[in-house]
Design a protein around this nucleic acid. Structure first.
Lengths: 191, 191
DNA sequence: ATGATTTTGTGACATAAATCAAATGGCCAA
DNA sequence: TTGGCCATTTGATTTATGTCACAAAATCAT
């Protein structure tokens, strides 16, 4: 294990304001665990209710669901991103499967252990709500930049804003994420 | 004023758990105001940062933005729905204009007054986070039921899930909400 | 390495939906 | 009531993107 578990926790929490104090860290720690999983491992499965969320420390993941027998990818995530199912968090079954695209290091959050802490520790509450709030803004952006835009516009926007995706994710997955066929993506790339 | 301000507040807060206690209500009250505005009034304007969110007590509203000179409608809201700009809440300018579709009665929330209360009163914090959390689930649903679906599928889904929209919103607005042209919507309706 | 499987690219064709162009219908104001 | 302005419908045509079929390239397992 090249990276110390505590370092991983610290690095992530730095991003969140107000910074979590020792008290909050102490409460959270028993609910955190550093994990390693190989490519293709499924963190969360469609139609199930998982009690965990994850921070991607190293690696990549995708979220997909089946529609008319084909996989539709809804997002991709990389280092320092939180992955999980918002529906799971709200005690609903996930619609999507979250699968690792590379061998990955993860920090797992035991949601069932952490949720009760929100009532007694305002920092933890703020932390979780900030994660959800950021996700909410991301969803708004995604709708805004997708709605009524052509295949080419969506493609060039993704290329500009998230070039990593094209380096680390198979084109087949990117196509359904963009809402286009594999062939169309291939032609757009050919320019 | 046919409806008492306190009744309006109570009725809305009932929806949220844990129910707000007297303490929370007392803190919130100075930041609430019942308003009446005519059709076409703009609650929030594009590219500005408003300090208010609203509960639609009676009436209807739409949110739209300009794209290539034409209005794109992003949502419609009716009785008992919260309207506002998530971007405003995060101190970013709104991308959208929120306009009343009918003469309406509103309960306004002074966000700048309420936000500081979140630190001192956990109920208020939970209340706001629940509103955001529900909006987040709504956005996920909207993406899920829109992505890679045909014009007809999106149309029939809206008709099934929100028939009110077709009774109270002009078809021109509904078309851009569905991501299709007015002509196509007309043809879909003609069956 | 070698062949096998999967991923990506290319061409021909089909089709959903946009666009352009009127025509019709509703609604509001004077 | 009348005219005028939107909103909606209908028709003809165009266009972007999907589908099907296969070829080429890359990746994987043995």
């Amino acid at each position: 294990m090249p990276v110390d578990s505590a370092d991983i926790v610290d690095a992530f929490f730095e991003r969140y304001r107000p910074k979590l104090t020792e008290t909050a860290i102490l409460l959270l720690t028993p609910n955190l665990k550093v994990l390693h999983h190989p490519k293709k491992h499924e963190l969360i499965k469609a139609n199930q209710t998982s009690g965990y969320a994850y921070l991607l420390v190293k690696g990549a993941a995708r979220s997909y669901y089946l529609y008319n027998g084909t996989e539709i990818n809804s997002w991709f995530a990389f280092e320092n991103e939180m992955v999980g199912s918002l529906r799971n968090y709200n005690n609903l079954p996930s619609r999507e499967t979250i699968e690792l695209l590379e061998d990955s290091t993860l920090l797992s959050f035991n949601v069932n252990g952490i949720k009760p802490l929100m009532a007694e520790n305002i920092e933890i509450s703020n932390f979780i709500n900030q994660v959800i709030g950021e996700y909410c803004l991301y969803l708004e952006d995604k709708l805004f930049y997708t709605h009524l835009r052509s295949a080419r516009e969506r493609y060039t926007a993704l290329l500009a804003q998230e070039p990593n995706v094209f380096k680390r994710v198979p084109l087949t997955y990117i196509a359904s994420f963009l809402g286009i066929s594999r062939e169309t993506l291939s032609r757009l790339r050919a320019k």
